[in-house]
């Protein structure tokens, strides 16, 4: 004999099971993006085939960008002594107006990409931080020197959005696309 109570319990069980299954599926689909891929696959996913036509310079972005804005920025990797992060997909991008030590003939400089010969204030106004996030909004674990093989002074263009905590003094781009010169990839 099936009582009302039993029927209620069974119905509740089925509904809860369906709800949990649905949640699980959603979680799975969220993680199917950047997070669960190998370094090479991740590097391929963020790679752009062509230069975004809307790309602006770092200096221009510093003046006009506001948090949440979609943006494409071009520049050179550098501006600090170690501009590429070790374990996270992050680097510092610098405007082309900045002269690196090798460009002004200082061949003896061991770290020309830090632009130590450039005016410090000018350098500070022409840099931005680039960070690739995974689908959960966390910094993407990827050594970009290994994959896709970035190195200091590379010319790159990144697409993404201006980070919520970004300020005019500290531009942070949460990137999702990267274009580098074909010879670099």
């Amino acid at each position: 004999m099936i009582t009302k109570n039993t029927l209620f319990n069974v119905t509740t069980f089925i509904l809860v099971s369906l709800f949990l299954t649905a949640c699980g599926k959603q979680e799975e689909s969220t993680n199917a993006g950047l997070q669960n891929n190998g370094a090479e696959e991740t590097a391929t996913l963020i790679r752009l085939a062509t230069v975004p036509s809307s790309a602006i310079s770092v200096g221009q972005a510093r003046k006009t960008a506001h948090p949440g804005q979609k943006i494409a920025v071009s520049g050179q990797i550098g501006g600090t002594r170690s501009p590429i992060a070790e374990e996270y997909a992050s680097f510092v991008i610098t405007d082309s107006v900045i002269l690196f030590c090798n460009e002004i003939g200082d061949e003896g400089c061991e770290t020309p990409w830090d632009a130590c010969c450039e005016d410090a204030d000018k350098l500070a106004e022409h840099r931005a931080s680039v960070l690739f996030l995974n689908d959960n909004g966390q910094p993407l674990n990827l050594n970009m020197k290994q994959q896709p093989g970035l190195s200091e002074l590379d010319y790159v263009t990144v697409t993404g959005i201006v980070a919520p905590g970004s300020t005019p003094d500290n531009l942070i781009i949460h990137a999702n696309g990267l274009y580098t010169e074909p010879t670099k990839l």
């Binding site: 501006g79 600090t80 170690s82 501009p83 992060a85 070790e86 374990e87 996270y88 992050s90 680097f91 510092v92 500070a124 840099r127 931005a128 931080s129 960070l131 910094p139 300020t167 003094d169 500290n170 942070i172």
Partner: peptide, 14 residues
């Protein structure tokens, strides 16, 4: 965990 500190220094260029 050093990478986290390194990332912080790169995110706070100011």
């Amino acid at each position: 965990s050093y990478a986290s500190a390194d990332l912080f220094s790169k995110q706070r260029l100011d």
